[in-house]
């Protein structure tokens, strides 16, 4: 029993953080496409979320590699009915992987994402590990949500320390303190579920992680907007990008309700 990151994993997180904080986006330069261990993937995706990196990330870096395909984007009906916009598309039905063609574009709640309705194309492979691929999609999406939540908590804590109203920092008001304490509690308790799911990769644990990470990150988003006030509601402020991506990922790779079903079935 050793439920903590290895020094190598801690280093990976630090390197990623520095890289993304510098505004770089050429992830392949870092060799992240070679990350396959589920715990390493969680470390990677938490940092991707922490910087609200857009794009079909779970799809390209976690799901398609397991299926022997990619990069690109992939749909898994019924729980992932549409793919995120990309250069190349795939479709998984039962244990069959097919190429797919975009037939229509669909708005997401996050304007930085676009969804694409697919038409099935030629079969690429049969007997693919579809269940494992799906669970990796759910897991990495959960890790992203965790990182998004942490970023919004950091943004909001900093804002609450510096923004003054009624002659003092708003972070001195007990209501603001308690809002932010609740966000921290949610994230702190979601985090071990996400890493635990990376260790077991059971559908029960992966779904539990997704439920908790979605709720904690969305609570972080709501609180962030409320504490920021009108400034957080503007397109030019950084918060919006995090908030909108969080809302999209909350129901991506299966809704909270579907994941709660999966947990209950497995108990």
């Amino acid at each position: 029993m050793m439920f903590t990151l290895s020094p190598e994993q801690t280093d990976l997180a630090a390197v990623l953080h520095e890289f993304l904080a510098a505004g770089r986006t050429d992830l392949t330069a870092l060799g992240v496409d070679e990350v396959t261990d589920p715990v390493d993937l969680v470390v990677l995706f938490e940092e991707l979320g922490h910087h609200a990196v857009p794009g079909p990330l779970a799809e390209s870096l976690a799901v398609l590699p397991v299926l022997g395909a990619g990069p690109g984007s992939v749909a898994f009906p019924p729980h992932v009915p549409h793919a995120v916009e990309a250069d190349r598309y795939y479709l998984v039905e039962d244990d069959t992987l097919r190429e797919a063609a975009p037939v229509a574009s669909i708005e997401s709640v996050d304007p930085a994402r676009r969804l694409v309705k697919l038409a099935a194309g030629p079969v690429v492979a049969t007997g693919v590990p579809a269940a494992r691929a799906f669970d990796l999609g759910v897991l990495t999406c959960s890790a992203q949500l965790l990182g998004l939540g942490r970023a919004m908590l950091e943004l909001t804590t900093a804002h609450a320390r510096s923004r003054t109203q009624f002659g003092r920092p708003i972070g001195g008001f007990q209501a603001v303190k308690h809002h932010l304490a609740n966000v921290l509690i949610g994230l702190e308790l979601a985090r071990p579920l996400v890493f635990g799911a990376a260790v077991t990769l059971s559908s029960r644990d992966v779904s539990a992680a997704k439920v908790a990470a979605s709720d904690a990150a969305w609570q972080a988003a709501r609180t962030a907007l409320q504490v920021h006030g009108a400034i957080g509601y503007t397109a030019e402020h950084g918060l919006g990008r995090f908030l909108l991506q969080t809302r999209a990922l909350r129901t991506a790779w299966g809704s909270p309700s579907m994941h709660r079903s999966r947990v209950l079935e497995a108990l």
């Binding site: 903590t4 702190e188 071990p192 635990g196 539990a208 709660r260 079903s261």
Partner: peptide
């Protein structure tokens, strides 16, 4: 009431794993 039941189980599991993490660090 399904979600409240499932969330109770998830919450207990979260606390359990959180405690394991606290043992290690």
């Amino acid at each position: 009431l399904r979600d409240r039941v499932v969330d109770a189980w998830i919450g207990a599991q979260a606390y359990r794993l959180h405690t394991f993490a606290a043992l290690s660090q």
